[in-house]
Amino acid sequence: MAENVFSWLDERLGLKAIYDTILDRKVPKVNWWFTLGSASLFLGIMQGITGMLLSVYYVPTPDHAYDSITFIMTGVQFGWLIRGIHHWGASLLILTAFIHMLRVFFYGAYKYPREFTWITGVGLLISALGMGFTGYLLPWNQRSYWATTVGSEIAGTVPWVGDFILRTLRGGTNLSALTLSRFFSLHIWIFPAIILATVGTHLYLVIRLGISHIPDKDS
């Protein structure tokens, strides 16, 4: 029965071909540092799942943001778990992605033919930092409010166009409901869309080119 289902699906979806090209392929023998890429992917998926769940209760307005998060933490069963994972996952993700980058650098894996993989990787790291910056404001507490005030002020020091950037970032001169809702939009739609596309490219390249091998002394 199971075999029949599988062959029916395989005939239409080409599962075997996928298995052969993605899973059943030879790669160089590597060490444990090479696991951090997929660890970042795993943490990213966890962020996606817990983020979607948080948006079930979270309300992105200055009136409700803080109370809705207090409600998630105290009024919803396992809300503390979902928020806790999202909170700590963000830090861990940045850390693993950064160490992953250092590993790639140390083994010279950004060189031919993986230059473009590296570029997408740097893009992902920057986007992750963007996620961190926008997500930091969402709880609308003292810490997030003042950190974002200063953070956006930094953008305001750019010569000539600084004030313009500042007002674009904040949606006005001061932090307000407009700031919160545009940060929310960036955090749950715009950055995730960019990240999804970039992760797709990154993974395609990793599979197409194979993971790099550990260089020997002559190379």
Binding site: P62, Y66, L129, R143, A147, V150
Partner: peptide
């Protein structure tokens, strides 16, 4: 953390650790 309070400027702003 306490709720955001624009009138309380005594708060020492501190970004997320990776910044």
């Amino acid at each position: 953390e306490p709720k955001a309070d624009p009138s309380d400027s005594t708060y020492v702003p501190r970004p997320e650790w990776y910044f």
